[in-house]
């Protein structure tokens, strides 16, 4: 029973090749709200399965599988240009780390919080995707670059969200990674660090393909001031939540 539940949960806290299902589903969902809901709810179903089945997965095979899945999708993010798919691959790279956290025997609240911390950046990136698609007809990096010159507010939001995707301080992903690293073995720790590095590389490529470089593409309106403040408030709230969650101690 527990084996079956683990296999089922591997679709929701996606481990390759089960992760193909989530990525196809994310690519096929065109409604922005439905996509947001998918990104928020999907991993929590996996968490719910683990909590419901009182699963205590352990063992080198599962840890290796989760680590390799995370690295695999982080590596593939390097050459993804469509921002929506980029967000889905980020999620497919971040959510396998939940398995590694589960192996450390956290409380239910900590497990849910960790999963949310790993979900924040992909969800924010979906918002960026919609903002880009609405203004530039398509949300492709490298297609219409140099946004920093004409659209400073949108560029600022893209930069902040990308930093969150790279799990840099003080975003929740940073503390979540430190949490999982604090109980990791050497192999798993090295795998997580490689994943982290690849996120940074992919994030820098995303920035270079959107906000930096010579301006090209159609003329577009910048993000309204009120929306920018809203996003800023959302980010501050998430940072604060992350800090409260870590409670000043790992």
């Amino acid at each position: 029973m527990s084996g079956l539940l683990i296999i089922l949960a591997a679709f929701f806290l996606p481990l390759f090749p089960a992760s193909l299902v989530f990525n196809r589903l994310a690519a096929g969902t065109t409604n922005p709200f439905a996509r947001l809901a998918l990104f928020i709810v999907w991993p929590q179903i996996g968490v719910a399965l683990i909590l419901w089945g009182d699963l205590a997965p352990a063992g080198t095979v599962l840890a290796t599988w989760a680590t390799l899945s995370a690295i695999f999708y982080a590596f593939r993010m390097l050459t993804v240009r469509e921002v929506g798919r980029w967000a889905a691959m980020l999620a497919s790279s971040a959510w396998p780390l939940v398995w590694l956290f589960v192996m450390q025997g956290p409380t239910a609240a900590d497990l849910i919080a960790f999963t949310l911390a790993m979900t924040v950046a992909p969800v924010l990136m979906l918002l960026v995707r919609d903002a880009l698609a609405r203004r530039l007809e398509a949300a492709y990096t490298g297609l219409h670059g140099g946004l920093a010159r004409d659209l400073p507010r949108l560029s600022g939001v893209i930069a902040v969200v990308t930093l969150a995707a790279m799990a840099l301080p003080l975003f929740p992903g940073f503390f979540a990674l430190l949490s999982v690293l604090s109980g990791a073995t050497l192999g798993v720790a090295l795998g997580i660090l490689v994943t982290w590095l690849l996120w940074s590389w992919a994030g820098a490529r995303l920035l270079q393909g959107t906000i930096f470089g010579p301006r090209s593409g159609p003329i577009a309106d910048d993000l309204p001031r009120s929306t920018t403040w809203l996003v800023a408030g959302l980010v501050v709230m998430m940072v604060a939540a992350g800090l409260i969650w870590t409670g000043g101690a790992v």
């Binding site: 140099g146 920093a148 010159r149 270079q208 906000i211 930096f212 470089g213 010579p214 301006r215």
Partner: peptide
């Protein structure tokens, strides 16, 4: 990358 346009700076 303060000067956001030159590709070499990026």
């Amino acid at each position: 990358a303060h000067n956001t346009e030159p590709p070499t700076a990026q």
